[in-house]
Amino acid sequence: MAEPEREPRNRKADVKVVIDQQEVRRLLDQENAQLVEVLPHQEYEQEHLPGAINMPLKELTPDAVATLDRARPVIVYCHDFL
């Protein structure tokens, strides 16, 4: 009996795919990823990654995220690990 096909790891809702800087750049260059800074507006205004849009964590509502393209990868970031 054939083994059931496993769901790809990054397709599960409870699995975070953590990536490094190199992978960020690859996704942006090669897969047209969308970059989202989830810090408050003021911090985004002071400094952000090139091409990033701002969607503060508190504002991640269904309406707000409707502007994102679901067919493209989305990369979220904040300050750091802390």
Partner: peptide
Amino acid sequence: IAVYDYAAGK
């Protein structure tokens, strides 16, 4: 579906 966390961040 395709969501990635750049954990090391800004």
